[in-house]
């Protein structure tokens, strides 16, 4: 437990010290959302039906564009090799990174969501459901993306490769995440999509962190 809190402190220290990441991501998120009404149409019903999907896709891209910053510093300082020598459990390293990334995303989404509801004309209830689906969907999303980067850590170019690897894995999350709001808008019961999302959540956390920790360990060994 002591190691875990130390690692967590380290990740949050990196985040708070590097406030640029937060503002860059916030700006990226806000501006790309802002562009869509111009690209598609300002028609209220269209915006309402496209909005949740756009928000989900941009969330995915924001996570993808920020994931490398969680490993770059560690790679530069060869901190991972240090962990390996110290026999630090890599599952803890992996979980602290996920938690830190999740907190970063949640803080960005908390600022974005009210603005998003305002500009895309979603009711409060839809926003609440969208937030719930994001809350349930982003942890497995982040886990899968961190898994992909753990696989590619020993290669030099990670950016595009992570996107290619992670794409088939995140499609189900995207489908059910957007499906929740679609179900609500069409007046269907929300139990089904949320059950599926919870199932994916449990499924991802049952397997992926252990495998990702193993991959991290193997790349640190090099």
């Amino acid at each position: 437990m002591h190691i875990f809190s130390a690692l967590l402190k380290h990740e949050f220290l990196l985040l708070t010290r590097n406030k640029e990441i937060f503002f860059t991501l916030l700006l990226f998120f806000g501006l790309s959302l802002f562009l869509f009404p111009f690209a598609l149409s300002s028609d209220a019903t269209l915006l309402k039906s496209f909005g949740p999907g756009l928000l989900w896709v941009i969330t995915i891209f924001t996570i993808l564009s920020s994931v490398e910053s969680f490993y770059k510093k560690d790679n530069d300082n060869s901190l991972l090799s240090f962990y390996y020598i110290q026999k630090t459990p890599f599952i803890l390293v992996f979980f602290t990174k996920i938690i830190a990334h999740f907190c970063l995303m949640i803080s960005i989404l908390m600022i974005i969501l009210p603005l998003f509801g305002l500009f895309f004309g979603l009711e409060l209830k839809s926003i609440v459901i969208l937030s719930a689906s994001l809350l349930l969907g982003t942890p497995p999303l982040i886990t899968l993306i961190h898994f992909a980067i753990a696989l590619t850590l020993s290669t030099q170019k990670t950016g595009m490769l992570v996107l290619v690897i992670v794409l088939p894995f995140i499609i189900p999350i995207l489908i059910f995440g957007v499906g929740t709001v679609t179900f609500y808008e069409t007046g269907q019961t929300l139990k089904q999509p949320f059950m599926f999302m919870a199932a994916i959540f449990l499924f991802v956390f049952a397997f992926v962190p252990w495998i990702a920790a193993y991959a991290l360990k193997e790349s640190a060994r090099q």
Binding site: L151, I171, I175, G179, F196, F207, I211, Y214, A215, E218
Partner: peptide, 24 residues
């Protein structure tokens, strides 16, 4: 080592993809 992991996780993912696409 890494390719093994990707193949194994990918196999677990196939039924999820089939199910979710069906639902979608």
């Amino acid at each position: 080592k890494m390719l093994r992991l990707l193949a194994l996780i990918g196999l677990l993912n196939i039924p999820i993809i089939k199910g979710s696409v069906q639902w979608w």
